[in-house]
Amino acid sequence: MSVIYVILTVSVIVGIAFFIVFLFAVKSGQYDDSYTPSVRMLFEDELVKDETKQSIKTKTD
């Protein structure tokens, strides 16, 4: 039943991998500003919508 060693090794490696990702995320400054990204996220759609609106406008003009 040594498969449990394999499973444990895998789970520990996965855990540590995520932990390292977390460390990099903190280091890159992802947690420094927790507000702006939540607003920025919504902009992409608005921009596209605006462009389509514009093209419709130019057609009707």
Binding site: S34, Y35, V39, R40, F43, E46
Partner: peptide, 22 residues
């Protein structure tokens, strides 16, 4: 946030702007 992050449209020399709202 929106206008400042689109600043590159007003000045071609600007590569990127990132706002920290806080």
């Amino acid at each position: 946030i929106w206008i400042l992050e689109n600043l590159s449209k007003l000045d071609k020399g600007i590569i990127d702007t990132q706002v920290n709202f806080g």
